[in-house]
């Protein structure tokens, strides 16, 4: 296996939230002790429901937000302090793509100018070389220079996302964080962008952190997948293997809730209860109030992520603590 490009160890991040105008402020643990490593040229998929801390993890990995504790290492070096020259140099090697391309683009600038912007900011190449690079990037995302002259409003959703992708690739980054990049797109356009992303990754040997709630898309693009629930990773393993045989009860429910053509809903696990509120994290295993298999221990102890053979790790007392189950 190639050496890791991104190493995240035990990062946590909490926000304070006030309930009501005069209420007491409470800490919301958005991310709680998350560790990840992404080898060079590979893709790590991060799945989970809203409020599970996927996006916050992505933002911390990219240095857009400092972690409260823990550390992010990029290419073996810790992230430089926000706003310094070293940070800027590091940031040119890592880029981010968001869900809403229209929100990420300036409506009053032709898109080619926006693709060029990172080159100007980081002072890469001569002005002529920058123009050439913009044309090259447009070609790379399968658009023409004519598209570059247009404004975002005159492009379709799929084309806009290609522009965002082109801009992200302008500085020749090694690492890309994609936060729900295809969720707003129609199925046929989604497939175009997913294919393009796979091709570009292979050509440029990009390393990706791919955040999505769509299990199908995540499986399509990822080598390794991590499932998050309330700020913690509950299961992590190779994409094919994890989706074929999820071990954690939450991962099982998530996989089974993903509708598939040609399969009727018989046998689907329907979880009771609402999606969890990060401000009121249950004691013990955060999933236990909704878990169909929860035992007394789950309400007391937080399960740690432990290896269960292969490269799979699961945080569940019932999966990892086989001896307790036998004893019970």
């Amino acid at each position: 296996m190639s050496p890791p490009l991104v190493e995240v160890s035990e990062i946590s991040r909490s926000y304070s939230m006030r309930s009501g105008m005069f209420g007491r402020s409470t800490a919301v643990h958005a991310v709680d002790g998350v560790s990840l490593t992404i080898p060079k040229g590979e893709t790590l998929g991060l799945v989970g429901e809203s409020g599970s801390g996927k996006s916050t993890t992505g933002r911390i990995v990219l240095g857009l937000e400092p972690p409260d504790s823990g550390e992010v290492k990029f290419d073996g070096k810790p992230m430089a302090a926000l706003g310094t020259a070293a940070w800027r140099a590091q940031r040119a090697r890592m880029q981010m793509i968001f869900q809403d391309p229209l929100g990420a683009l300036d409506r009053r600038l032709p898109v080619a100018a926006q693709i060029r912007e990172p080159l100007d900011i980081h002072g890469l190449g001569t002005p002529d070389a920058r123009e050439e690079r913009v044309r090259e990037l447009l070609r790379a995302v399968e658009l023409t220079p004519a598209h570059g002259a247009r404004y975002p409003g005159a492009l379709s959703g799929g084309q806009r996302q290609r522009i965002v992708l082109a801009r992200a690739l302008a500085t020749k980054p090694d690492f890309l964080v994609c936060d729900e990049p295809v969720s707003a797109l129609d199925v046929s356009i989604q497939a175009q962008v997913v294919n393009l992303l796979c091709d570009l990754q292979a050509q440029l040997s990009l390393t990706l952190l791919f955040i999505s709630h769509d299990l199908r898309v995540v499986r399509q693009i990822s080598n390794v997948v991590a499932v998050m629930y309330l700020g913690r990773i509950v299961e992590i393993g190779s994409a094919d293997d994890l989706f074929a045989r999820p071990e954690h009860p939450y991962a099982q429910a998530l996989v089974s809730a993903s509708p598939a053509p040609g399969r009727r809903s018989a046998g689907r696990i329907v979880l009771a209860g609402d999606p969890p509120n990060p401000a009121a994290r249950p004691q013990g295993c955060a999933f236990h109030p909704r878990c169909p298999h929860a035992v007394a221990r789950c309400a007391r102890e937080v399960p740690a992520l432990a290896a269960v053979g292969g490269n799979r790790q699961v945080a569940c007392h019932l999966v990892t603590g086989a001896e307790t189950r036998d004893a019970a």
């Binding site: 199925v187 497939a191 299990l215 989706f243 996989v255």
Partner: peptide, 15 residues
Amino acid sequence: ALPPLDGPRRRLTAI
């Protein structure tokens, strides 16, 4: 265009 959830991965046939 729909990525499969099981079985081998294939390139998506985008329209």
